[in-house]
Design a protein around this nucleic acid. Structure first.
Lengths: 138, 138
DNA sequence: CAGCATCCTCGTGGATACTG
DNA sequence: CAGTATCCACGAGGATGCTG
């Protein structure tokens, strides 16, 4: 796979050039987007169809107005969702997945499935680790 | 990425929205892990086999010692990688994927594939968005 | 209704120095 | 070699008030 634009570095690089290594990694474009706190939640909510701003806010519940606006904007910027403004009074706006956004839901679904099947194991590993820290007495 | 680790209920929600709660969404466990800056890069490097600390550091190049140590410990805590200490002098430690960790690579691979195929579209959408901001003159 | 503007907290992660 | 320990900059994200 391509984590970098070229082969993974075997030797240290001058600082700054290495930052580009990650910056150019395609999967980081995705992870930086869906890795944030709200993107996946919003995407999931839009999977069933167009949703208005207020509806999204109520559905998610514990998202601030600020973060909803900002995340929606970022998703739109990346071409994953489309924003439609209806010139009514008061204004109405809805959001929906673009084709690109819909296509992202497929790989995302695999991740969700893995999570559903394995989150218990992760939680158990976590508890076990916390009970018996690395520096534990023999 | 600040994800809630406990129950989060600020206001009453419509029925059905409860499933969207962050605290109850297993995929958050995964995104919280792989969504950080280094986890995927490390996991990818471990895909081919056990790697020692110093090797990982050189392979990745621009990761600080602190973040490599910390991310490795978090991955270990979640049961995704195994840490093996060889009591040599000087000490030698290697890391490898657990079965759980390996199984995560599959859904991750779909994400990587999607990224490789679509990151150009994302970048273009981004550029287009930045050239023509939402509040652009009619 | 669907935002924008502002202030502020706190977690992530970088830099550096030290050690068994 | 494989870490710890500290300090610190930055930005994500929460709270609140205002607006077209």
């Amino acid at each position: 796979m391509r984590l970098a634009d070229g082969p993974v570095r075997l030797q240290p690089m001058p600082p700054g050039a290495d930052a580009m290594l990650i910056a150019k990694c395609p999967v980081r474009d995705v992870l930086d987007r869906i890795g944030d706190k709200w993107s996946v939640l919003i995407l999931k909510n839009l999977e069933e169809g167009p949703r208005r701003f207020g509806v999204l806010k109520r559905m998610i519940g514990d998202i601030s107005q600020r973060m909803l606006t900002q995340t929606l904007r970022d998703l739109q910027r990346d071409g994953l969702i489309q924003r439609t403004v209806y010139p009514t009074v008061p204004p109405s706006v809805d959001y929906r997945l673009t084709k690109l956004g819909q296509s992202l839901m497929d790989p995302l679904e695999y991740l969700v499935q893995w999570s559903d099947r394995n989150h218990q194991k992760v939680r158990k590993a976590r508890q076990s680790f916390d009970r018996t820290p690395p520096g534990a007495p023999a």
